[in-house]
């Protein structure tokens, strides 16, 4: 039985009259990659924001390593091991790639240790060559990798990736995929990702949650999800 590193339980979010999430929940286990998919506007990013504390939930609980963090602020959750990337890029644009990573590493390590860790992570993510370049001038795909590197430098136990592959070339996507598998296998990280590139999801994720109209409509393996009629109709419309 795998340990749940991250659990979001029965999350409700209302924006005015709009019910963005109703009793939505996800679980991410140590050493696994979990996918969260669903049509546009289903509430995926909202759920992410609730988990990291950027969005207030009307009801529900978020548990990290078995401990409720729903009352904590964003930075506190981050210190406890929750890290993320953003759908709309939120890199530190006026800093270099290295400094982006350093800011995160320095939150828990001394000067030398942080510098060493940063260089290792940049190498691992494949950013060593652009380390000194201002992130604001990098292509979107590369800036996304900087966000990933920065998230890793924060030493997460659970890593949330929002559209990790958008803007990336096919090779870059593949590289991110194998990097994630490596992280999960070797470091026991729990990864939860929102993704539109379905071949990426189907190939990387061992569990997939499908969100539609703010509700989880299916949970299962790639095969189960692909053959689930509810999922098909959610994606392709009412006709099929």
């Amino acid at each position: 039985m795998p340990d749940a590193v991250l659990e979001a339980i029965d999350i409700d979010v209302r924006f005015g009259g709009l019910q963005a999430l109703s009793s939505a929940g996800v679980t991410a286990d140590a050493g696994t990659i979990t996918g969260l998919i669903g049509p546009n506007g289903a509430g995926k990013t909202t759920l992410f924001n609730v988990i990291t504390g950027h969005q207030h939930a009307n009801a529900g609980d978020v548990r990290l390593l078995g401990r409720s963090v729903a009352k904590y602020g964003v930075h506190r959750r981050a210190q406890l091991g929750l890290s993320r990337t953003f759908q709309k890029l939120e890199a530190f644009n006026s800093l270099s790639a290295r400094d982006n990573v350093l800011v995160a590493a320095e939150m828990h390590s001394g000067v030398r240790a942080a510098a060493r860790q940063s260089d290792e992570i940049l190498e691992r993510v494949g950013l060593a060559e652009v380390a000194d370049i201002t992130v604001g001038t990098l292509p979107t795909g590369t800036a996304r990798l900087v966000e990933l590197a920065r998230a890793l430098a924060a030493r997460p136990r659970a890593l949330l990736l929002d559209e990790a592959s958008s803007g990336l070339t096919e090779e870059e996507t593949a590289a991110v995929g194998s990097l994630l598998k490596q992280l999960v296998d070797e470091d026991g990280l729990a990864v939860l990702l929102v993704e539109h590139d379905m071949s990426f999801v189907m190939n990387t994720c061992s569990h997939i949650h499908v969100l539609d109209f703010g509700q989880i409509i299916a949970v299962g393996s790639a095969d189960e999800i692909q053959n689930d009629p509810a999922v098909r109709s959610a994606y392709l419309g009412t006709g099929s």
Partner: peptide, 15 residues
């Protein structure tokens, strides 16, 4: 062709 494009069926994995 759409089903394939959306759900990643038959389109092969990353090479």
């Amino acid at each position: 062709e759409l089903t394939a494009a959306y759900l990643g069926i038959e389109s092969g994995g990353p090479s």
